[in-house]
Design a protein around this nucleic acid. Sequence first.
DNA 1: CCCTCGATGATAACGGCTCTCACCAGGGCT
DNA 2: AGCCCTGGTGAGAGCCGTTATCATCGAGGG
Lengths: 154, 154
Amino acid sequence: MAAHAHTHATGSGWKQHVLASFAHEGFRAGGARAVVVELLAEQDCCLSAQEIFDRLRAGGRKVGIASVYRVLDQLAQMQLVQRVDVGGGVSRFEAAHPGGDHHHHLVCDDCGRVVAFEDERLEAELDRVGKSLGARVAAHDLVLHGACADCSQK
Amino acid sequence: MAAHAHTHATGSGWKQHVLASFAHEGFRAGGARAVVVELLAEQDCCLSAQEIFDRLRAGGRKVGIASVYRVLDQLAQMQLVQRVDVGGGVSRFEAAHPGGDHHHHLVCDDCGRVVAFEDERLEAELDRVGKSLGARVAAHDLVLHGACADCSQK
DNA sequence: CCCTCGATGATAACGGCTCTCACCAGGGCT
DNA sequence: AGCCCTGGTGAGAGCCGTTATCATCGAGGG
């Protein structure tokens, strides 16, 4: 049981930002869109499309899996969510907060858990490397693989 | 016929190392194993399982796709190859040179090209972060997304 | 209030990966 | 050298995440 009782305030700000962006781009206000955004705003770590679908269904919402993927794709293209590719052929998604509050993931190959972390100096290095390549880096995706703190003690 | 006439010396060393490791672990010398290892040793950037399969077939070798995945899985578990998850639901693989000569990838979301790069300071930061998490980090997988140097100039 | 067109959701299709299983061959033994 | 046991191999079926298709729904302007 992880204790994760934080970051919901920032999530709300993100939600407003996303809805405003949709309106600005001339999208209509669809139900699936709103509900996916709402769910994502409440999370503090990445979810897979299937997990999003399941939770919405569990909440009584009759969304289609296609809509979930469609919305996630739109959000990713608008750079409002980040695709996190954690291996195993499954993409995960999480809210991308414009300018900061950005984290990465450690995947425990032993117990399968995903642990989020952030590190300022690491971000600085990533920025530097991106620039030195002459590329316009829109996003970066870092995944550490190994045994998490718990599993490595066994 | 691609003209890739470099890094074969290091690749050859890796190949010997892998074959020795297999022998040491008591594996038999199967045909598929040898031929996958040989192909990987010749590469200087990551290949997908399908690409490996196609090239071996094109070379007249009647390997099964299952064998390719099997061998890659064994190699990954022995930490002799690194899985590179570049998105799009496809895993790529490349020789992991023990202790160094390690690189990462920039994926151009525009033209789809994969550019490899390496950076010592970045590696140092990654090591530091891994340690600070208390985890035993076996591998890390970093992918930059954006527009490559060519595409970002357009 | 109606009409148009984007949004939605069920379902089929697709593709990468894994599983299964019969056959093959390495290599220790005689 | 020949045999046998066992691990290795390859073809194909199956699984599952993702994408494409299409009929229906409903937002919102006229």
